[in-house]
């Protein structure tokens, strides 16, 4: 059972909610697919069981001693990634066109390290995460790799909770591919609604069971209503409305899951929401 927590835009409270849900679910494997801002794991101390360099994609490499500076590579590169017979690694897309035109065979494609990946054991279970190299993108391959690593540990567990990537690009697609259900966390702001619509388009495309929760629903009643209408119209499941709660900020600063704060009103709402989610995903 894989549940993916998504939000179109950042800052809607996706990680707070993903963390709370994994606390409530008790037996879980967590996968942090929000690899460009991997905050999910920060709540937990743990011991790294596995650390692995992740290579994905290639970059061109010019062998200086063979290069006769003919400039053919520069001419053929459509990404302006070659300047003065040097490769700009950030612009190079690893297509290899330059290797084809080099009369000296001075250019090769080299595998590029894009991330460190970790399997960490905490007292709450296993977390799989990655730390990206700068300028590298989360690829479908990396997300698949993380999910697969986590799979090894998920045999006896009931739920795997995936903290999905933001946006609607390839990493998100890889986060939800083959998963069982999606929970979209949104907030009642104009941009929150726009982003929700984008994410839902994606979920519809992939025909995945989709639930929505509105975080900080009470900061703008009008937009909350708009979101509710949208959810109705799309025939999605609105599983929770979480109130604005100062304790959330406190929990983030103290790096403790919100479920730790007994009197938190957000915690109460999330607990109720989890009951509803369970009904949907386990039946």
């Amino acid at each position: 059972m894989e549940l993916v927590v998504l939000s179109g835009k950042g800052g809607t409270g996706k990680t707070t909610i993903a963390t709370a849900l994994s606390e409530l679910a008790k037996e879980v494997v967590r996968v942090d697919c929000d690899v460009e801002a991997s905050n999910f794991y920060m709540y937990y101390d743990g011991k790294d069981l596995e650390k692995e360099d992740f290579y994905g994609g290639k970059k061109a490499d010019i062998k200086k001693d063979k290069c006769i500076q003919c400039g053919k590579c520069e001419e053929v590169c459509r990404f302006n990634a070659i300047d003065h017979f040097q490769i700009n690694a950030f612009a190079c897309e690893g297509c290899g066109a330059c290797t084809l035109v080099c009369p000296q065979n001075a250019i090769i494609l080299k595998d590029e390290k894009v991330a460190n990946t970790f399997i960490t054991k905490t007292d709450k279970g296993i977390i799989a995460k990655a730390e990206m190299e700068i300028g590298s993108d989360a690829s479908g391959l990396l997300i698949s790799f993380l999910r697969k690593k986590a799979e090894k540990f998920s045999k006896n567990e009931l739920v795997t909770i995936i903290d999905g990537s933001p946006g609607i690009g390839c990493p998100v697609i890889a986060s939800i591919t083959g998963s069982n259900a999606v929970l979209v966390v949104t907030e009642p702001t104009k941009s929150g609604l726009e982003d929700l619509k984008r994410v839902i388009t994606l979920c519809e495309h992939f025909q995945i069971f989709t639930m929505v929760c509105i975080n900080k629903y009470d900061i703008n009643g009008e937009v909350t209503k708009e979101i509710e209408d949208f959810v109705d119209q799309k025939e999605l499941k609105l599983v929770g409305k979480i109130p604005y709660d100062d304790v959330v900020m406190k929990s983030i600063n103290e790096l403790k899951p919100i479920t730790f704060y007994k009197d938190s009103i957000a915690k109460k709402a999330i607990t109720e929401m989890w009951k509803t989610i369970q009904k949907f995903i386990f039946t």
Partner: peptide, 10 residues
Amino acid sequence: SGPAHHGGHN
């Protein structure tokens, strides 16, 4: 077919 899976661009 099942869901598509575009790779990353890197």
